[in-house]
């Protein structure tokens, strides 16, 4: 191996040795993935897409903060959280893809907006661009991770062993995410007048997207015993959020319901205006150079 040229030494030999992120194998490679008897595979795939898309899209949003966070440690923290969610997304999309006949890359990069099943909370623009704020991102992380943690806690008992294993693994990560968001919420809410004002504004920004998290979808009804009914999570999540807001001296916003389109929302593939811009950025390279790996 030559060290005269940095690129030669990076690219020579086995590429995976030098740069993580090249030549990835499939996310569930080598995991026992038999489908349990009696489970509706189409519905299981739809459910995995829902949970996988939540993680993928929110991961993309968190990644936007890389190099833009208020302090270096927070850059690292948000990138780490994004990485955990991306890992969860890869496993869930791979599980869905086994039924749909598409791999994780095809599902992430080659679906159009109407095929994504994530909740609106994951996709809305909370910054770092114009109109956004770090406090709004923390508010979103608090709500999202509190809800997903409660969900994964129950999903550990899923009749699908792969979903149960993904949940058991992700649960520990989500506990760190929620604690991180909760501690920031208290720090900002109970900080200066300015930090309090912005944290309250952050909550007001994301709260209209809270109700959607707890709306039961037909797929979840079909998959009793495999999926978790999100309506069953409401009191636990409300309790957590109340504890955090009380400690932070913040007021719980009253506006909990954003408008839907003909009664449909993210789980039905109907998204907010922000989604198209997000997908354009996330997908353009793979679509411009089909089959690209990096």
């Amino acid at each position: 191996m030559s060290f005269d040229n940095a690129y030669e030494s990076l690219l020579g030999g086995e590429d995976a040795h030098w740069a993580f992120g090249t030549g990835f194998s499939e996310a569930l490679s080598g995991v026992n993935r038999e489908f349990p008897a009696g489970v509706d595979r189409e519905a299981l795939a739809a459910y995995c897409l829902m949970l996988g898309d939540d993680a993928l899209i929110f991961s993309q949003r968190l990644s936007e903060w890389c190099s833009r966070a208020p302090e270096l440690e927070e850059d690292i923290a948000l990138a780490n959280i994004a990485l955990d969610l991306l890992g969860q997304a890869r496993m869930l999309l791979t599980r869905a893809g086994e039924v749909l006949g598409r791999d994780e890359d095809a599902l992430a990069y080659l679906r159009d907006e109407r095929e994504f099943r994530n909740v609106h909370l994951a996709e809305i623009d909370c910054g770092p661009g114009p109109g956004g704020d770090f406090a709004a991102t923390i508010a979103r992380l608090l709500v999202f991770s509190s809800w997903r943690l409660a969900l994964f806690s129950r999903l550990r008992g899923s009749a699908d062993p792969v979903l149960a294993a993904i949940a058991e693994k992700g649960l520990k990560e989500l506990a760190y995410h929620r604690d991180h968001a909760a501690q920031w919420t208290v720090r900002l809410g109970d900080g200066t007048d300015e930090s309090h004002r912005r944290m309250q504004a952050g909550l007001e920004r994301v709260w209209p997207f809270v109700d959607e998290l707890f709306a039961t979808h037909a797929v979840e009804v079909t998959l009793a015993g495999v999926a978790v009914d999100p309506a069953s999570l409401r009191s636990e999540v409300d309790g957590v959020l109340e504890a955090v807001l009380n400690a932070a001296g913040l007021t719980r916003p009253t506006d909990t319901r954003a408008a839907r389109v003909a009664g449909m929302a993210g789980r039905d593939g109907v998204h907010t205006e922000a989604m198209g811009f997000l997908l354009a950025e996330m997908q353009h390279l793979y679509r411009s150079l089909p089959g690209a790996v990096w």
Partner: peptide, 9 residues
């Protein structure tokens, strides 16, 4: 971790 990039390595 779910997203551990070193698992392939």
């Amino acid at each position: 971790y779910s997203g551990c990039p070193a698992i392939d390595e």
